[in-house]
């Protein structure tokens, strides 16, 4: 089976400014592929290139086995698209918007539309100008999903949706994938993507920093560790932790006797990598409390982002943080 999307050496220049510097990635059919990056990284530009809304300056694109530049209308009938900035006409209703797009990209099963609208709790007969941002976004999702496309290209799909509706959206994505569709979605927040995506590309300043699975990101990410134990000297607890690969920032102290069992030691550390070696070491201790936090993928990704532009930001943030401190002291 051919890949759903293949992008090779994709470059895009607007005038003199190059915003995509040669992207390479491929999306396997029947998977969810997430692109994460801060605003301005090139996510929207990449998606618009896939839909032939803008044209690459260099490189090749294949979408569902076809070149979007040449394939024409039949290809776009097989794609559902949610733009990053969704604009809707004012003097119309959701139903009429959907009917229009159905007339272009149909056929559309009306029961499917009604079903999706029910699940998203969207009133299709309201005037679009009276819809909240979240409700407009639901309408945008509906027009992307309604003709059951083979490929969904969704730019910041969860933006403006409250958590409950996000769950509905994730269910819709899963159902689409179960039905054989491929989903290509973007976000500037990893936590929104990690739930849905099989693979994640991290985009920064028009370059792909890494393509990885959410699982691999999770392994690479740093977790916070904190535990209390009794019966072991603080010094020995520290030594034990130091033996575990991936453990860093170890801090150990003996807790004061009041409120705790005598000789309670509290330890904090960070862990990156696998947890099994840590658990094996901790099993030697007499633990009274243990917290191993959910890995902060956000942190992991932010580290990747900040790789390039740290020097330019540093003086600015330094100056900003110093001033109030000084004022406070005076």
């Amino acid at each position: 089976m051919t890949q759903a999307i293949v992008v090779e050496g994709l470059r895009k220049k607007f005038g003199q400014r190059e915003v995509l510097h040669g992207l390479d990635f491929a999306v396997e059919p029947g998977t969810v592929f997430g692109v994460i990056g801060p605003n301005g990284a090139g996510k929207t530009t990449t998606m618009r290139c896939l839909l032939d809304i803008i044209r690459p300056s260099a490189g090749s694109i294949s979408v569902l086995g076809e070149d979007p530049r040449r394939a024409g209308t039949e290809l776009r009938r097989r794609i559902g698209y949610l733009p990053g900035e969704l604009h809707l006409e004012n003097r119309t209703t959701g139903r009429r918007v959907l009917e229009h797009f159905a007339a272009i990209s149909g056929p559309v099963d009306q029961r499917h539309v009604n079903d999706l609208a029910d699940r998203l709790e969207l009133d299709l007969d309201r005037q679009t100008r009276k819809l909240s941002k979240g409700n407009k976004q639901k309408l945008g999702l509906l027009q992307a999903f309604m003709h059951k496309p083979e490929l969904l290209i969704l730019d910041e799909p969860t933006s403006g949706l409250d958590p409950l509706v996000q769950q509905v959206f994730h269910a819709m994505v899963r159902e689409a994938v179960d039905g054989g569709a491929t989903v290509f979605l973007s976000s500037h927040v990893l936590s929104e993507v990690q739930q849905a995506a099989d693979a994640v590309a991290i985009l920064r300043d028009g370059d792909i920093v890494t393509v990885s699975t959410v699982e691999a990101l999770r392994t690479a990410a740093v977790r916070q560790l904190r535990f209390n134990s009794t019966g072991t000297e603080a010094h020995d607890v520290g030594a034990l932790l130091a033996r575990v690969p991936g453990v860093a920032n170890v801090a150990v102290r003996e807790l004061p006797a009041d409120g705790h069992a005598a000789g309670t030691v509290e330890a904090t550390a960070t862990l990156s990598g696998h947890i099994q070696p840590l658990i094996q070491e901790l099993a030697r201790l007499n633990l009274t409390d243990l917290v191993l936090e959910e890995p902060d993928l956000e942190e992991a990704v932010l580290k990747l982002y900040s790789g390039g532009d740290a020097p330019s930001n540093a003086p600015h943030s330094l100056g900003a943080s110093k001033q109030p401190e000084g004022a406070h002291r005076a």
Binding site: R48, L51, D52, I53, T73, E74, R76, R77, I79, Y81, P83, E85, L86, H87, L88, E89, F101, I104, S105, Q143
Partner: peptide, 11 residues
């Protein structure tokens, strides 16, 4: 901003 979505459909 309306044209973008129209062009993304089958026209």
């Amino acid at each position: 901003g309306l044209l973008e979505l129209t062009l993304a459909h089958s026209v």
